[in-house]
Simulated assay, not measured.
Amino acid sequence: MTPYQVTAAYSGDADTTASAGTATHTVGRAATTIEVSSAPDPSVVGQAVTFTARVRPVGPWSG
């Protein structure tokens, strides 16, 4: 588990004063799947190719 510190700040405006707050959020490690695709496929020598990688969590919450 890795704790991360999260800070939010509001600079205020004519009607509201500035405010800030900090909280710690702990993130647990999750199993993942990785999908990699390329386009166009097939391609030819010298042609630009775009690679896309998607990392997704594995679990009942990953919907």
Rank of each mutant, 00 (worst) to 15 (best):
S19G: 08
A30Y: 09
V44G: 04
G46T: 09
A9H: 10
P40W: 07
P57N: 08
G21R: 10
T26V: 14
R56V: 09
H25I: 15
T32V: 15
A53T: 13
A23D: 04
A14Y: 05
A39W: 07
T50D: 13
G59Q: 08
T2Q: 08
G12T: 01
F51D: 00
V6H: 05
T17G: 15
T26I: 11
S43A: 15
P40I: 08
A20K: 11
A20P: 01
H25S: 07
V58D: 03
Q5N: 08
T52M: 02
E35W: 02
A23G: 02
P60D: 14
V44H: 04
V55R: 02
T24F: 01
S43M: 07
G12L: 03
V45D: 12
T50Q: 13
A39I: 03
V6I: 14
T50C: 03
A8N: 05
T17C: 06
V27R: 03
Y10F: 15
P42S: 10
S37F: 07
A31K: 12
T17H: 12
H25G: 00
G46P: 08
T2C: 06
Q47H: 05
T7R: 13
G21N: 09
A9Q: 12
V36C: 04
I34M: 03
T16K: 09
T52F: 01
D15N: 15
S38I: 10
A14V: 01
P60R: 14
Q47S: 07
Y4V: 08
T17S: 13
S19L: 07
V27T: 01
